[in-house]
Design a protein around this nucleic acid. Structure first.
Length: 216
DNA sequence: ACATTAATTGTGT
DNA sequence: ACACAATTAATGT
């Protein structure tokens, strides 16, 4: 009882304009809510996906493991979004080929994937939601692809910083150079040097474990 | 308050 | 990429 009313409220707050009322009622019967804290691993490589998440609050980062065992940040999932990779897994009945880590504390609704097919057939607003989030994700992925293929690391780093600022809504990022290097699949020294350049250009201010972005 | 240590960042080769 | 120096934060005495 308690739980479902809470889910309903949260849903209405975040997905009001996106999903229609009768679908939400149906959804609530199957949904569970899960909270998570920053840096928590929500799914790892090769794990089966049992649920499809709808993000209410906070943000997630999605990583892909590259052949040499390194990791690369693919994209962020923000409130009101779902993870497009789950969609792909649901249809292909595949295991996760990405790793998802919480960027900030938050909460999400978990929908059992067994219901997906019926729901897609039955509820147009749900179908629409799935299709549009899938296509948005495609577009974003193309951006990260060009960024990898065509852009220099300094531009990538700058985009990384400004993205993070947007996600957090804070000009000051609490992160070490080492962590950034991991996420961009680079090395600490290189990141430190580029950041130093940014600082000389007056674009950022560097402190221990903190970076203040001054323009974007 | 001071010394010690660990972690992070800066720089030259 | 590596090595080392310099700086900062954390911890104990």
């Amino acid at each position: 009882m308690e739980v479902t009313t809470e889910i309903k409220q949260q849903l209405e707050e975040t997905f009001a304009g996106i999903l229609d009322a009768d679908f939400m009622e149906e959804l609530v019967k199957y949904a569970t809510i899960q909270r998570f804290k920053s840096e928590e691993e929500l799914i790892g490589y090769g794990e089966p996906m049992k649920f499809m998440p709808l993000l209410l609050d906070g943000s997630l980062k999605v990583f892909r493991e590259s052949s040499d065992g390194r990791e690369l940040l693919l994209y962020y999932v923000e409130s009101g979004d779902t993870c497009a990779m789950t969609i792909q897994c649901c249809f292909g009945k595949a295991l996760s080929n990405v790793r998802v880590i919480a960027e900030e504390d938050g909460a999400m609704i978990m929908l059992p994937i067994q219901q997906m097919e019926q729901w897609i057939a039955k509820y147009p607003s749900w179908r629409q939601f799935i299709l549009s989030s899938y296509s948005m994700r495609m577009t974003e992925l193309f951006d990260t692809i060009d960024s990898l293929a065509f852009k220099q690391l300094d531009q990538r780093l700058w985009e990384y910083l400004t993205d993070k600022v947007k996600i957090h809504g804070e000009l000051v990022l609490n992160i070490s150079h080492e962590k950034i290097a991991e996420e961009l699949n680079s090395s600490r020294v290189v990141i430190s040097r580029l950041l130093k350049d940014f600082e000389h250009q007056g674009k950022v201010k560097l402190m221990r474990n903190k970076i203040e972005v001054k323009e974007f």
